[in-house]
């Protein structure tokens, strides 16, 4: 099966916004992702400062299911390995993001999307800083993307 094309970004973005809105109305809170990682980490080691949220753990379980089902329906589930340099940077970048997310108390989902829509000061500070940090390092890792 030939993979179907991705949805229009404005259509997908509206869908994502309605999911976020549903979360505000039904759960009284926004979306999240890094909080699920800290919750699992807190189960592995005794770290009192790591944020714990069973709600986020369940939500991320849903993200994995939803992402898989969407890709399956569109013929986009394939095992794909990148070259070693890209895989190493993926792992290292993930580690650096872990540090940033713990320090900031959230990530693109919990701070930028959720805080952005609720006009949270910290959400907007984080979002602008994250874009700035990414644009600053982008030239350094450019070759890894070619």
């Amino acid at each position: 099966m030939t993979p179907r094309r991705y949805a229009d970004p404005y259509v997908a973005g509206t869908g994502l916004g309605l999911v976020l809105l549903a979360s505000f109305v039904l759960a009284g809170r926004g979306l999240g992702a890094s909080g699920a990682f800290t919750t699992v980490a807190a189960k592995v080691i005794d770290a009192p400062s790591l944020h714990r949220s069973e709600w986020l753990l369940l939500e991320i379980g849903g993200v994995i299911i939803g992402g898989f089902v969407s890709a399956l329906l569109a013929g986009r589930v394939h095992w794909k390995v990148e070259r070693p340099s890209r895989m190493s940077l993926a792992f290292a970048g993930g580690g650096v993001m872990g540090l940033g997310a713990v320090l900031a108390r959230g990530c693109t989902s919990g701070l930028a999307l959720t805080g952005g829509a609720l006009l949270s000061v910290g959400g907007w500070v984080f979002m602008i800083a994250a874009f700035a940090g990414a644009y600053m390092l982008a030239p350094v890792v450019r070759r890894s993307w070619q």
């Binding site: 979306l31 999240g32 992702a33 890094s34 699920a36 990682f37 991320i60 993200v63 994995i64 939803g66 992402g67 890709a71 940077l89 993926a90 290292a92 970048g93 993930g94 580690g95 650096v96 993001m97 872990g98 540090l99 940033g100 997310a101 713990v102 320090l103 900031a104 108390r105 990530c107 693109t108 989902s109 701070l111 910290g122 500070v125 984080f126 979002m127 602008i128 800083a129 994250a130 874009f131 700035a132 940090g133 990414a134 644009y135 600053m136 390092l137 982008a138 890792v141 890894s144 993307w145």
Partner: peptide, 25 residues
């Protein structure tokens, strides 16, 4: 912490190409 954390997070983001939520997807 959110200003510094954001800068660090962004640097990790462009190296990884994915953020925590999209990495799960």
């Amino acid at each position: 912490p959110q200003l510094l954390g954001g800068l660090i997070f962004g640097a990790g983001f462009v190296a990884a190409g994915l953020c925590p939520g999209t990495s799960c997807v």
